[in-house]
């Protein structure tokens, strides 16, 4: 699908994957897709399922819209994009309900909210409408990885510190820390701590990457 002169994994294409991981991270730099990212980070399992669902929807939607980019009249492009996304999300939702029902219950309305996840709309608008399918796929791939990274890091710390488990496996108990007087920090489970944990993540990222620092 890519240009004949350009190799499939040329530097430029790889940059599309690498950039969203740090310099242009969808959550911490572009400020897209925060809502779903914060709400499901109490445990690792829903976070991973969410990341995978977004990955699927994003890559597919990017390719589909990119294939149709010359046919879509610009006045009604938003509703066309929404229809493409909504169709894909229905597929994901029905699949989750069929195979991992308990996880889909835990995610509750947030699977549906992938539709309005601004990362997907944002990338469609900013990238897929103007680029060829292969590049759009790479862009979707990179951005969903960039979305998954903070999601999984935040979920990791919240589950470990809040409940003392990882993927439901009682890590702290097996390490025997409870006998030494360690206690779980129940506060990490509460919704506001998602915001604070994410804020700290942003803080650390920007300390390492000075050019992301904002003026005010």
């Amino acid at each position: 699908m890519s240009d004949k002169k350009e190799a499939l994994f040329s530097k430029k294409n790889l940059k599309l994957i690498k950039d969203p991981l740090d310099d242009n991270n969808p959550i911490t730099v572009q400020v897209l897709g925060i809502c779903s990212a914060l709400a499901i980070t109490v445990q690792l399992k829903p976070a991973v399922v969410m990341a995978l669902s977004t990955f699927f929807v994003m890559c597919t939607a990017n390719v589909v819209v990119s294939l149709m980019r010359n046919m879509i009249p610009s006045r009604i492009r938003i509703i066309i994009q929404l229809v493409v996304i909504a169709t894909l999300v229905i597929l994901v939702d029905q699949t989750l309900k069929a195979f991992v029902y308990d996880v889909s219950k835990e995610l509750s309305v947030f699977v549906g909210l992938i539709i309005t996840n601004c990362i997907i709309m944002g990338r469609l608008e900013a990238f897929a409408l103007a680029n060829k399918p292969w590049k759009s796929f790479m862009d979707g791939f990179g951005n969903s990885l960039g979305y998954a990274l903070p999601l999984i890091v935040v979920a990791f710390f919240r589950e470990l510190l809040g409940a003392g488990t990882l993927f439901g496996y009682p890590v702290i108990e097996k390490l025997g820390l409870y006998e030494l007087g360690y206690e779980n920090n129940g506060m990490m489970i509460l919704p506001p701590m998602a915001l604070v944990t994410c804020g700290v993540y942003i803080w650390i990222q920007r300390m390492r990457n000075k050019k992301l620092i904002e003026e005010n």
Binding site: P191, P192, I204
Partner: peptide, 28 residues
């Protein structure tokens, strides 16, 4: 908050997240 001295790396998005978290605790 423009008049406060926020650590540079926390300015903008980071501090907004943390303040929202604190407001959330208040709302709880």
């Amino acid at each position: 908050i423009r008049y406060s001295n926020v650590p540079p790396a926390l300015r903008g998005l980071g501090i907004t997240f943390i303040i929202t978290g604190l407001m959330g605790i208040a709302f709880m």
